[in-house]
Each structure stands twice: as structure tokens, then as C-alpha cells.
Design a protein around this nucleic acid. Structure first.
Lengths: 343, 343
DNA sequence: TATGATAATTTACGCGCGTAAAAAAATTTA
DNA sequence: TAAATTTTTTTACGCGCGTAAATTATCATA
């Protein structure tokens, strides 16, 4: 069991009885060698616990097995969750994922990508900051590294985009809200960090138009990624002014809604879907915390699993086909309405 | 500006007019060369945009500039935040941090550490899972790689531990609660994942003893890292049974408290520090979301900044002194009481 | 300006593995 | 069983850089 320490592939190949080039081939792709030799190598592997030197390996390989996963803001559990999903899928496919967060900073986003290049990644899964992103910088990066975007789309960038169908989020929440009470106003940031926000506003306007109702879009001040606080401040202002146009608020995303609910609590505004309540609040994303707000948040959930699976698989395809796809592919998944207590 | 592509350090050294070994030395530590040559290299660097090949670099160096940061559960924004802090400090010090999450799984924790070894890291900053951790596995790892623990201590493991003083958390919350109302019962998981929980219970018992009050420890069922849901279920049970011994609840940590508050909201139990309230709830950690709960959560805050700074600096020291410290160092920082509306 | 100390250059080798080419062996097919 | 095919082995080189040793150049000090 302890057995002497193995220094390199040379030594290991001797112990396994297989020549070094073949062993090397095995580590590149276990299926590329005859099953009998594969068995020999793997039995030796169990016996001697050798792992090829990563640095020496990647130095000469044109393509490493590294995959970069870049999310805009890891302190948002939504991204932490989806990153975990994707990470696992990469590992299962035999890649070595590394996780990065842009922390809401476009400069850092580009810096991460540039650093990533020196890791010679086989591919990158990128959830861009969105509006704030340095698009030229990202485009430059995408020229050199196979990249699949997820969560936020940037027109034409990368080999594919996988995300959620914003219209499907908003259509479901709007329909539900109008069906069960007063029509909703739309609560969002004036300058949203994320491009999905714009699509959601448009979807809201579209839906209200369809059902022939008057739309009200409320755009609040505030920049950055502290959405909860921004939502809270925006809500406090509205509640103090008494300037809410309807008794139903549809927030662009859950983090704003969490802030909104916090303000309501403070101002003693009863939120919920019951008759004795002052206000209904709904939202989009099904943030991990949205079931623990007071009241629990009615929202529309991403199809996490499909998004992460498709994003990862698409990247694998891109990699396997040499880094390029015939046409850029865009896939979006429908939302699922989650009816809780807030609306 | 565009200038021809530089293939390797050889080429770059010619362009910069400095010999390759000296350039190599520069990249290892810019201060190790004369300032005049440093200037020459750096001006060439601006002109030609060359970066040494990471893999070739790390292959031969006894010590890389890699640092691993391992947290138990990245979907917890608390860890996301502290990881970000530490990450930045590593970068500032010229290291290349890589972030990993054990996702609450001891097997994964060990797997991460073992994979980490093949990156030949200069050091590792590890927030262990705690109780569930495979201690033998971690110990084995620490023998080979300079490791500093943070957040959760495991007796004797690693070169140092930097965390928070659990007694200081509990003493402040207990003192505040007893000073302003009924004495608190202590709400925690029966089998907490994190060793800090035990220290907090002991501190609670100690404090109650000091002030001569009857302690009540409530231990709820549930395992894993879904603390909010566990806290919620535990609270629902208590509220349904009407078995709360006092009108003041001190939760072991904020995530349990978030679940607790959510249950209170659902059961129409008014939580807060005002006379018309049924219950007071306080907690520990100052979780990023604790200011947005309904009501906002009275809690005790970690000294994030000091913990991350000291943890990082300690690791740098360990690395600089060849991987070992004379004696294992334990440092804990005091908490700060954050008085909000829940108690 | 000479002196010693410090830093840069020259030369050379090695790290662990990828990979190409030619030869040999094992396997499949006829 | 021979021929055709696939796989493995042998041999050899190169990747980009770390690093050691001997030499030479540069600097600070007197």
C-alpha cells in the first residue's frame, strides 16, 4: 500500500509494464488505448497512486482540460448555486473547472479573462456583468477562447448563449397577478446592471398591453450590485410618499423584492395575498432566500438544471468541434411560477 | 503597439535587452533586480505585453505562487464575502488564489485538498467543514502543504487558526437581551455542522450562569447545510407546540434565525423589540441578509476584515518562513453587537 | 582611481511530459 | 496461416522556464 514514491510518468510506466507514450496517451483519453492495456494501467494506478504533473502536462498540450467559470457576483447565492451545478458537470465530463467572480466590476471581469488565457483553458463559461461589461474586451477574449455565455446574453458574443426566457417569467407573474387581484406596477432599477432587466420591463409592458391594462413602471435610483439595499431604499421612498400607483408590485428580480419586503415590514405595510393585506409583492428568479422572506415570496423560478446542463454540454460540443460552432446558438428556458404568500 | 507576438522569455529578454536568467529572476520577485534593470524590463513589458508561461514556470519552481482558498459552503453569502476579502489580499500580495467550496461534503473537502496538492500551492487557507471533516485526511494534507485555518478551528491542525471569539459574540447578545427584557433561550441544531456552535452554546450556559439565570437550550433536528429550512422547521414545531420557555430567542447563527423569523411570520407571531411584540429574536454572525429580514435581525458581527487580513498575512508568514511556524498560533477577534429591530 | 561588493551575463543542464517517426508486436481479417 | 490492420514500443526531440556556476560588468565606497 505505501509503496515507494513515484517521481514521474517514466517510473510509473515501468511499474505498470506499459510504455510511457502509451501511458501518456491513456491520460489524455483512457479510451484511446486497448482495453487490456487500459486495465493494466488502471490496476497499476490503484496500486501506486500516481498522478501526472499538471504543469508539465499542460505545458505542451495544445488544449488543456481546464475550464473557467466566471460569474458576475458570487456573493449572490443565485450565482453560487448555478456555479456549483455547472462546476459539477464539468468535473463529471473530465474537466478541471475553476471558479471566478467579477464582483460586479467590469475591470475585474476583463482581468479575470486575461489571466484565464494564460491557463490555456479548453473553454470558458461566462455569465457576463451585462450592461457594464467591457464588450470589446470580452469580444477579444472570445476570439481566442471557446466561450459559452449563460444567464446574461451579449448579442453576438461567444459561441452560444444559454439562459432563461424573460418573457416567460413576466408573462406568468403578470397573468397570475392580474387574474387574482389588482394589476401590478413594475419595480426596477433605473440603470439595471443586468440586461435581463430590460427584457423583463419590455415583457411587462407587452403583457399589460395585451390584457389592456395601464402599465406603471417605477424606476428607482441606485447603482452597483447591492440590490437588496437599493430595493429597500426605493421602497421606503415610495411608501413614505404614498406614491405607489397600485396595490400590487412586481419586482424585476428577487433581490430587489427582498429589499422591498424589508421596507414594507419596517413601515408596517402588510404584504400578502390575503384580504387584510395592504400590498401584494411578486418577483422573478426564485432566489434561494425567497422562501424565507416575510412573507415568503411569490416568484418565477429559473430552470437552473436545464440552464447549467445545456450551458456545460454546449461548451463541451464547442470544444469537441475545435472551438467553433457553425452558428451562434441561443437557448432559453421557460420559468416556473412559484406561488407563495406575498402575492 | 501591436508588435509581433512574443513566444517565450528568450525572445522577450532579447527585446528588453536583459538576459533571460535576470528576467526570470525579475518575474520571481521584481525587487530582486537592480532598479535600473527593473525599469528596462518593465518598459519592455508595457511595449510588448509578454507574460511568462504559467505551466513552465510552476513546473520547476519548488514553490508556486498558487494559494488555495477552501470554504465549506459557498452558497452561503457569509463565506462568499470572506472568500472575496481573502482572495483580494492574496492577489495584492502577488499570489494567485483559487477558490473552492466543499459544498458541505467532507468527501469533497478531502478531494479538493488532494487535487490542490497537484497544483503545488505555496499555501492554503482552509475553512474546514468542522465536525464532519475527515480529520485524518486534513492532517495528512497539512503535513505537506502550509495551511492556515480560518472560521472553524480544528484542534492542532494547520499552522494557525484565525477566527472569531465565540464567547464575545454570545456574551454581548446575552447581556443585551437580559438587560432589555426577558432572558433568552438558546436555539440551535442538535448536531451542528460547525464547531463554533458548540462554543456558542457553552458560552450561553456560562453567561446565564454568571448572571444567575435559568438557561434553556433548545436543540432542533435536521442535518446538512440548509440551515434556514432547518431553523424554520424547528421554529414551526416550537410555535405550534407553544413550547418556547421564554419570549426571547437567541439563535446560534443568523441562518437559523432567518428560518426562525420566516416561521414566525407565517404563524403570525410578532417579532421585535417593541411592547406589542410577542417574541424577541437575536442571533450571531451578521449575515449579509440579516439586515433585510422582517424584522431586521439583531445580531453580533464578525470582524470580517481582521479575520481575513490576519488569516492571509499569517499564511504569507508561514510561507516566507519555509512552511512552518514555531508554535501553532490561534487568534480570535471580538464581535460587534448590531442592534436592529428583532430584539 | 583603485577596491571590494553587488548584480548581470554566459553557458549549460534539467524538469516532466507531449508528440512525432519508425520499428516491432499484437490483433483482426481474409 | 498469411496478409492487413491496429496498437504498442523505441527512440528522440522539444516545450518554456528554473537554476546553478563561472565569468564579467557595474556600482558604491574610500
Amino acid at each position: 500500500m505505501p509503496s515507494k514514491k513515484i517521481r514521474n510518468m517514466e517510473e510509473f510506466s515501468e511499474l505498470s509494464g506499459i510504455s510511457r507514450p502509451t501511458v501518456s496517451k491513456y491520460f489524455h483519453d483512457p479510451n484511446s488505448v486497448r482495453s487490456s492495456t487500459r486495465a493494466k494501467i488502471e490496476s497499476a494506478l490503484e496500486q501506486f497512486d500516481y498522478r501526472p504533473n499538471i504543469f508539465a502536462m499542460n505545458q505542451n498540450r495544445k488544449l488543456t482540460k481546464n475550464i473557467g467559470i466566471v460569474v458576475p457576483y458570487l456573493a449572490d447565492p443565485f450565482f453560487a448555486e448555478i456555479a456549483r451545478n455547472i462546476e459539477q458537470k464539468c468535473i463529471d465530463a473530465g474537466y478541471r473547472p475553476t471558479l471566478f467572480s467579477s464582483h460586479g466590476d467590469p475591470k475585474l471581469e476583463i482581468e479575470i479573462l486575461e489571466n484565464l488565457r494564460s491557463l490555456k483553458p479548453a473553454g470558458v463559461l461566462l455569465a457576463p456583468l451585462g450592461r457594464a461589461s467591457d464588450k470589446a474586451g470580452i469580444e477579444r477574449f472570445c476570439k481566442h477562447v471557446p466561450t459559452v455565455l449563460f444567464d446574461s446574453n451579449i448579442e453576438g458574443m461567444g459561441q452560444a448563449f444559454i439562459g432563461s426566457d424573460n418573457f416567460s417569467f413576466v408573462s406568468q407573474t403578470v397573468e397570475y397577478l392580474t387574474r387574482t387581484g389588482e394589476s401590478p406596477c413594475f419595480f426596477e432599477m433605473k440603470y439595471p446592471a443586468n440586461p435581463n432587466a430590460n427584457k423583463r420591463r419590455i415583457a411587462y409592458l407587452d403583457m399589460m398591453d395585451r390584457v389592456g391594462l395601464q402599465p406603471h413602471v417605477i424606476q428607482i435610483e441606485g447603482t452597483g450590485w447591492g440590490f437588496e439595499e437599493i430595493g429597500r431604499q426605493g421602497a421606503l421612498k415610495l411608501l413614505n410618499d404614498g406614491s405607489l400607483p397600485t396595490n400590487t408590485v412586481l419586482c424585476s428580480n428577487d433581490r430587489l423584492a427582498i429589499g422591498f419586503l424589508s421596507a414594507c415590514y419596517e413601515k408596517n405595510v402588510r404584504v400578502g395575498r390575503w384580504p387584510n393585506c395592504d400590498l401584494r409583492v411578486a418577483s422573478h428568479d426564485d432566489h434561494p432566500f425567497s422562501r424565507f422572506t416575510g412573507p415568503s415570496l411569490t416568484t418565477a423560478a429559473h430552470d437552473y438544471e436545464s440552464v447549467s446542463e445545456n450551458a456545460a454540454n454546449t461548451l463541451f460540443q464547442v470544444i469537441d468541434s475545435g472551438g467553433k460552432l457553425k452558428d451562434r446558438r441561443e437557448t432559453v428556458y421557460r420559468a416556473r411560477l412559484i406561488m407563495r404568500d406575498s402575492a
